[in-house]
Write a protein that binds this DNA or RNA. Structure first.
Lengths: 241, 241
DNA sequence: CGTCGTAATATTGTCAACAATTAATGTTGA
DNA sequence: TCAACATTAATTGTTGACAATATTACGACG
C-alpha cells in the first residue's frame, strides 16, 4: 500500500486534470484511491501536497477533506491534519452490521423491480471481475470487487441507497486492508455471480441469503486481533517486490 | 413557517451559545430548525446573517453549509448562496423508498437484539408525543414525531444506521412540509406505539409490517401535484396565529 | 404604467498573510 | 548514549481584503 498523497492522482490519471477541479473531483479521486488500496489507513493527507497534486488552492482541498471526513473516509485532527481513516474493531463491526442490514434488503428490492438492462450491466461487471482475476490484476480486482456492491445498489434505482452503499463499501475496503487475512483482500470468486443468478431468476429469498452469506464470509476473514503492519507493505512498495 | 435565518437560534436557544461554536453545532441547529419546520424549504441562508447569529466567521459558516449540502438538507448554488433544500417529487420518492427499505429492516433488527432499557426510552418518547399532542404543541409534536424514528434507529446500536435515518427523516420533514396535506404534518397518532408494541413482544414480522404501513401512510398523505404555498404559512407565523 | 438599461449594493468565491499549533531537529548535561 | 530542553521548520486555522457575480434600485423612455 502506497502512502503517498501524490498517488491519489499520478497513478489514477492516465487522463489530464479537468479544467475545473472542484471538491467533488477531489473527493472522488481520494475515494477511489482508498477503495483500490492505493491510500492506506492512517496515511497523512498533507494539504500542501494535495494542493500541488490537484493544482488547486487550500480552500478547495480543505473543503474536500471536510466532506471526506463526514463520510468516514478521512479523519480530521485539529491542528494535526487529515489522515485516511483507520477504523478500529468497533467501527468495523458497525460498518458490516449496517451492510448486513442494507444490502440483502437491496438485493430483494432489485428482484422486486427487475430491469434487464441493469442485469446486463451487472453481468458484464462480473465478467470484468473474472478477467481481472484471471490476469492477476490485483488492484483492478479490488476495485471491481467493491464496485459490484455499488452497482447492485445502483440497480435499485435509488441514488440515496447507492450513496450509502458506496460509503460503506469504501470503508469496508479500509477495514479489509487493515484486518483482512491474506486470502481475503477482495470478495471471493463466484459469489457475486451466485447473488446475481438468484436475482436474475427472481428468487428474492435466495438473493438475500446469498448476500448475507457473502457479507459474512468477508467479515469472517477479518482478524481484529492482528491488524496488518502497514510498514511492511511500504517496504514491499519501495522496491522489494 | 419562518424564513428568518435568526430563527435558527433565537427560538431554539433558551440556552446561550457555547464558548466554542464549531461546524457540528451549526449543522445541528440547522438540522433541528428544518426538522421542526422553523426553516422552510427554499429559505435563503445568508452567510452574513448566520455569522452574526452564531457569532462565528465565514469560514465556519461555509463549512457547515457544505456539510448540510452533502446531507441533502441545503442546496448550495454557485454565486447565489445557500438555500434550505426544496425537494421535488422525484427526490421525495427516493427518500421514502430508502426509508421503506431501511426502517422495517431496522425494526426487525431491534427485535433480534432487544434491550429493555432501550425499549423504556422509546416508551417514554411515545409518552412525550402523547403529551405534546394532548397539549396541541405542534412544533414539539413535529419534532418528536420524527425523533421516534431516529431513536428507533439508535436502538439498533449502530451509529451509521442512526445517522442515515436521521438524514432521511429530516429530509422527509422538508417533504412533508412541502407536499403534506393539512392533516398529515406529523406521524399519525398511535402508530409509533403499535410498532413499539410489536417490538416489545418480540414479533419481528409484525414490527416490520407496522413500520411499512406507517411509512406508507405518511407517504400516502403527500400530494405532489399541489405543493403548499409557503407564503401562506409564513403569514401565519409572522403574526396571524 | 410597464419595460429596459445602468448604476449601486449585496453577496459569494477566493486568496495571501498572519497567528497558532505541532513536528522535527539541534544542543546540552548527566 | 540518552533524556530533556531549546530552537527551527512545517503545517494547520483563521481572517480581512479584494475579485467576481448576482440582486436590487432607480431613472429614462415609450
Amino acid at each position: 500500500m502506497s502512502t503517498s498523497a501524490e498517488s491519489v492522482v499520478t497513478e489514477n490519471t492516465q487522463t489530464a486534470l479537468p479544467d475545473r477541479v472542484d471538491e467533488a473531483f477531489i473527493v472522488e479521486r481520494i475515494f477511489s484511491a482508498v477503495m483500490e488500496h492505493r491510500l492506506a489507513p492512517a496515511t497523512k493527507l498533507n494539504e500542501h501536497k494535495l494542493c500541488e497534486t490537484f493544482g488547486v488552492g487550500r480552500m478547495r482541498v480543505r473543503r474536500a477533506l471536510l466532506l471526506l471526513s463526514s463520510q468516514g473516509i478521512v479523519d480530521l485532527e485539529t491542528n494535526r491534519g487529515a489522515f485516511v481513516a483507520s477504523p478500529g474493531p468497533e467501527e468495523a463491526n458497525e460498518v458490516f452490521e449496517a451492510r448486513a442490514l442494507l444490502e440483502p434488503a437491496i438485493a430483494r428490492q432489485v428482484v422486486a423491480d427487475i430491469m434487464p438492462e441493469r442485469m446486463e450491466l451487472l453481468r458484464q461487471h462480473i465478467s470484468l471481475e473474472s478477467e481481472a482475476r484471471g490476469n492477476n490484476r490485483v488492484t483492478d480486482l479490488i476495485r471491481l470487487s467493491g464496485e459490484f456492491h455499488v452497482k447492485l445498489a445502483q440497480a435499485s434505482g435509488n441514488s440515496i441507497l447507492r450513496r450509502v452503499v458506496r460509503e460503506l463499501v469504501t470503508r469496508s475496503s479500509l477495514i479489509v486492508g487493515l484486518f483482512g487475512t491474506s486470502s481475503h483482500t477482495m470478495c471471493p470468486a463466484n459469489e457475486h455471480s451466485y447473488i446475481l443468478s438468484a436475482i436474475e431468476r427472481g428468487d428474492a429469498d435466495s438473493a438475500e441469503v446469498q448476500m448475507i452469506e457473502h457479507l459474512n464470509r468477508i467479515r469472517d476473514g477479518l482478524n481484529f486481533s492482528a491488524p496488518k503492519p502497514q510498514e511492511k507493505d511500504l517496504a514491499e512498495i519501495l522496491g522489494l517486490q
